[in-house]
């Protein structure tokens, strides 16, 4: 799959932002006043910024509002509805904390649930696709939720919890990669089933329908991005988990914490690049590629 920068930025940043909102929502002793303002500003900047960047890859961004209508069937529509609901509820919760110093715990829990619900609906957009076996697993949802909760813990300064969650996320990521590497061949979809010609023999693409790449080839067959996949996996785990863990184990300093956060975000972004670049779509089979 083509790793569109807008989608990588969106899933990385909004996941982090909604993760932070979730932690702020369930906090029994949340910050108030200016401290609260700073935390919520970061959370909203990440989640709203991510949502806005996701509209950049639309062919017709001016009609994006229509995407709220099909929540009965479409995970993308559910994501939109859930995101707006989460932002509204958490906006009210944040306003009460910042301006009135009042803590409405129930509102916070509702907002936290909606925030994680948004991350879940995002992950289901990918996990539902049978055409991309690597994504088509409940583990994709677990991984997205784990990243959101981990990043949120890190951003909200929950050091002990973040240490555990960083390890859990790294483990889940490695598990997801291991499962994903065999997913396509495990599905049994081949050039022979794609063409129905398997009963005659083995199929080879002799001539593609067009001489230069078209939308399908550009969107679904992105082989160049996989070239350094193994190295990028190591870099991703190192930046996402190993370096932040080491920095958090040092005596606390704001500088080390900031570097840990930046490193974690960079590691998640690398993992998201691979999420798309390594994903193989069944349409590639018609071109004799994956």
């Amino acid at each position: 799959m083509h790793p569109a920068p807008s989608v990588i930025a969106f899933t990385t940043l909004s996941g982090l932002g909604f993760g932070l909102l979730a932690w702020l929502g369930i906090d029994a002793t949340p910050p108030t006043g200016w401290t609260a303002f700073a935390f919520f500003a970061i959370a909203f900047a990440l989640s709203v910024g991510g949502l806005i960047s996701s509209t950049f890859h639309l062919g017709r961004p001016e009609r994006a509002w229509k995407a709220f209508s099909q929540w009965r069937t479409s995970w993308l529509s559910r994501e939109g509805v859930c995101a707006v609901a989460a932002l509204v509820v958490m906006g009210l919760y944040a306003a009460a904390l910042v301006f009135a110093g009042a803590h409405f715990a129930l509102l916070g829990w509702l907002g936290a649930a909606l925030s994680l619900g948004t991350v879940y609906t995002t992950s289901m957009i990918y996990a539902q696709l049978k055409t991309i076996p690597r994504w088509n697993t409940p583990l994709t949802c677990v991984l997205y939720l784990a990243y959101a909760i981990t990043g949120g813990a890190l951003l909200s300064g929950r050091v002990e919890i973040a240490l555990v969650l960083l390890l859990v996320s790294a483990g889940l990521q490695i598990l997801w990669w291991m499962q994903g590497d065999g997913a396509f061949s495990g599905r049994g979809t081949t050039m022979e089933t794609a063409t129905g010609l398997g009963s005659i023999g083995t199929v080879r693409s002799a001539a593609p329908p067009h001489t230069a790449p078209n939308y399908l080839v550009r969107e679904f067959i992105h082989i160049i991005g996989r070239k350094h996949a193994q190295k990028l996996r190591v870099i991703s785990i190192a930046l996402m988990a190993v370096l932040p863990i080491l920095l958090l184990l040092l005596p606390f300093s704001h500088m080390a914490a900031a570097v840990a956060v930046v490193s974690h975000i960079a590691g998640v972004a690398v993992s998201r690049w691979l999420f798309f670049a390594e994903a193989e779509h069944t349409v590639g089979l018609y071109y004799g590629a994956r």
Partner: peptide, 15 residues
């Protein structure tokens, strides 16, 4: 009504 998100093309196995 189409916003050009491309998700339907992702969901179609046949291109």
């Amino acid at each position: 009504d189409c916003i050009g998100c491309g998700l339907c093309a992702w969901a179609c196995p046949y291109g």
